[in-house]
Simulated scan of single mutants.
Amino acid sequence: MTIPAIVHAKQLIAVEMAAHAAARTVNDITAAWIALERAHIISQPYLGPHLVNHWAMLGFAVEQRDWREVIGQAIRLALAPLGSLTGRIPIGNTGRSNVSAFEPMAIPDDLRDAMARRDQ
C-alpha cells in the first residue's frame, strides 16, 4: 500500500529531527545543522512543515548566537509562503543563510532515494 506523500515526508522529517536532537545532546553542532538541512529538503514542498523547519533553524541559530543565520532564517520565514504560492521552491536547497534562498541544489542520494520510496 502506498502512503500519502505528506505522511511519508513527515516520517522522514521526524527521523531527521531526531538526528538533530541526538547531535545536540553530544554538542555536535555540524551534525545538528546537517540534520536540519536534510529536514528542510524534505519539507520544501509542504508549506506547514517547511515553515516549522525554518522556525527550528531560527531557534537553533538563536541558541548558537549565530546572528547572521538568525537574520537569514527570518528572511526565509517571510519568503517560504511566497515560494509556495508561486511554485518557486528551489528543490534541494538546504535552507541555510550560507546559500542563496533561490538556488536549487543536488539532493543527497540517500535522501533522494528515501523520498522516492513511499511503500513502507
Score class of each variant (00 low, 15 high):
residue 43 S to A: 15
residue 99 V to L: 06
residue 88 R to G: 03
residue 33 W to K: 01
residue 58 L to N: 04
residue 29 I to C: 00
residue 75 I to A: 08
residue 40 H to N: 11
residue 43 S to L: 06
residue 69 E to G: 04
residue 60 F to L: 03
residue 55 W to Q: 04
residue 75 I to Q: 08
residue 49 P to W: 08
residue 73 Q to I: 05
residue 25 T to I: 08
residue 7 V to S: 11
residue 72 G to F: 05
residue 47 L to C: 04
residue 95 G to E: 00
residue 110 D to T: 07
residue 105 M to C: 10
residue 70 V to W: 09
residue 110 D to N: 13
residue 71 I to D: 01
residue 110 D to W: 10
residue 84 S to R: 14
residue 50 H to S: 03
residue 103 E to I: 03
residue 62 V to Y: 14
residue 31 A to G: 05
residue 55 W to V: 13
residue 22 A to V: 00
residue 60 F to S: 02
residue 19 A to V: 01
residue 89 I to T: 10
residue 35 A to Q: 08
residue 32 A to I: 05
residue 39 A to V: 09
residue 82 L to V: 14
residue 90 P to V: 12
residue 30 T to E: 12
residue 114 A to K: 07
residue 86 T to F: 15
residue 80 A to T: 15
residue 47 L to W: 03
residue 17 M to H: 13
residue 3 I to T: 13
residue 15 V to Y: 06
residue 90 P to H: 11
residue 98 N to T: 14
residue 28 D to F: 09
residue 108 P to G: 04
residue 62 V to G: 06
residue 28 D to S: 05
residue 69 E to V: 03
residue 35 A to W: 13
residue 21 A to W: 07
residue 103 E to M: 13
residue 16 E to S: 00
residue 27 N to E: 09
residue 81 P to Q: 12
residue 99 V to T: 13
residue 10 K to S: 05
residue 62 V to F: 15
residue 74 A to I: 15
residue 33 W to F: 01
residue 111 L to Y: 12
residue 120 Q to H: 11
residue 64 Q to E: 15
residue 91 I to K: 15
residue 87 G to V: 13
residue 34 I to C: 05
residue 81 P to A: 11
residue 28 D to W: 10
residue 19 A to L: 10
residue 37 E to R: 13
residue 79 L to V: 13
residue 114 A to L: 10
residue 64 Q to K: 15
residue 59 G to A: 12
residue 66 D to S: 10
residue 1 M to N: 12
residue 72 G to L: 07
residue 25 T to L: 11
residue 110 D to Y: 08
residue 94 T to F: 01
residue 69 E to D: 08
residue 16 E to D: 07
residue 53 N to W: 04
residue 22 A to W: 02
residue 120 Q to T: 10
residue 101 A to N: 04
residue 74 A to W: 02
residue 75 I to V: 15
residue 27 N to Q: 09
residue 34 I to W: 08
residue 66 D to W: 11
residue 109 D to F: 07
residue 80 A to I: 14
residue 64 Q to I: 04
residue 107 I to H: 03
residue 93 N to Y: 01
residue 43 S to H: 05
residue 100 S to A: 11
residue 28 D to Y: 10
residue 2 T to S: 11
residue 54 H to N: 03
residue 67 W to P: 00
residue 96 R to H: 03
residue 21 A to M: 06
residue 69 E to P: 00
residue 7 V to P: 00
residue 18 A to F: 02
residue 85 L to M: 14
residue 53 N to I: 05
residue 96 R to L: 07
residue 56 A to F: 11
residue 65 R to W: 12
residue 21 A to Q: 14
residue 35 A to I: 07
residue 12 L to Y: 12
residue 33 W to Q: 01
residue 100 S to C: 06
residue 39 A to Y: 10
residue 22 A to D: 09
residue 114 A to P: 00
residue 109 D to E: 15
residue 28 D to T: 01
residue 3 I to F: 06
residue 114 A to V: 05
residue 23 A to F: 05
residue 56 A to R: 15
residue 69 E to C: 02
residue 50 H to M: 02
